[in-house]
C-alpha cells in the first residue's frame, strides 16, 4: 500500500464512521457527536485534496493515467458520502425540532444505532475491543465511547473498555439481545 492507497482507505473508513455518527447524533439529539462529524469531514476533505494532487502529479506519465483516474473518481464518491453525513449532522445543529418520524424510521432500519452503558464488573471491563472481538461475537460495531467528559470516536482493536463507559454502536436489530449479557455486571 502506498501513501495514496492509505489515504483512500482512511477516507472510506472515516466516511462510514461519519454516517454512523451522523445517525447517532440524530437519534440521540446529540450536538457533540454532530460536531465530530464536521471535524471528520474536514479530515476527509484534506485527504481528498491530497489524493487529487498526488494523482494529477503522477498522471504526467501515461502509464499512471488509469490509476490516477480511478483514485480521483473513487475519492470523489467517498467525499460525497462524507458530505451526505455532514448534511445529516447539520439537521441536529440547526436547532430545529426534529420531526418524530425521523427517529422512528431510523429505529426501523436493518442497521440500528444503539447506546449501551457498560456496568461495573461486566465481561467487557478492562478488556480491549480486540481481545473480546465484540463485533464478531455480537454483531455490534462500536462507533464512539463516552467516558465521563471524554469521547473516543471510531475506537480500534486496542481501545480498552471500562465500567461506566457509554458505548454508541451499530448492529443488526437482533444484536441488542446478544450484547445484553456482555455489558451487564456479574
Amino acid at each position: 500500500m502506498n501513501e495514496d492507497d492509505r489515504r483512500l482507505l482512511e477516507m472510506k473508513n472515516t466516511s462510514e464512521l461519519m454516517l454512523d455518527l451522523a445517525y447517532s447524533s440524530l437519534i440521540y439529539q446529540n450536538k457533540v457527536i454532530a460536531k465530530e462529524v464536521i471535524e471528520l469531514e474536514d479530515r476527509v476533505d484534506r485527504l481528498h485534496e491530497a489524493i487529487i494532487r498526488s494523482a494529477l502529479g503522477k498522471s504526467k506519465e501515461p502509464k499512471n493515467f488509469d490509476r490516477s483516474l480511478i483514485m480521483i473518481k473513487i475519492s470523489d464518491s467517498i467525499e460525497r458520502i462524507a458530505d451526505a453525513a455532514l448534511d445529516i449532522a447539520d439537521v441536529v445543529l440547526r436547532d430545529i425540532e426534529l420531526h418524530p418520524v425521523v427517529k422512528k424510521s431510523l429505529e426501523d432500519s436493518d442497521v440500528v444505532i444503539q447506546k449501551h452503558v457498560v456496568e461495573n464488573g461486566s465481561l467487557l471491563h478492562g478488556k480491549t475491543l480486540g481481545e473480546i472481538k465484540l463485533a464478531t461475537e455480537t454483531g455490534v460495531w462500536v462507533i464512539a465511547i463516552r467516558r465521563g467528559y471524554d469521547w473516543i470516536y471510531g475506537p480500534d482493536e486496542g481501545t480498552t473498555i471500562s465500567g461506566g463507559d457509554i458505548l454508541y454502536a451499530r448492529g443488526p436489530a437482533d444484536s441488542e439481545k446478544i450484547i445484553a449479557p456482555w455489558i451487564k455486571g456479574k
Binding site: 483516474l69 473513487i74 458520502i81 451526505a84 439537521v91 440547526r94 425540532e97 426534529l98 420531526h99 425521523v102
Partner: peptide
Amino acid sequence: QMTGILQVASATEKISDAAEDMVKLLDMDL
C-alpha cells in the same frame, strides 16, 4: 420539521448517487 426530514432523505439520495458514480468506472476501459 419537514425540512429536517427532507434534508435526511436527500442525504441518503446523495449517497446512492455517489455509489452509482463509483460503478460508472466499470464502463470505462480501466
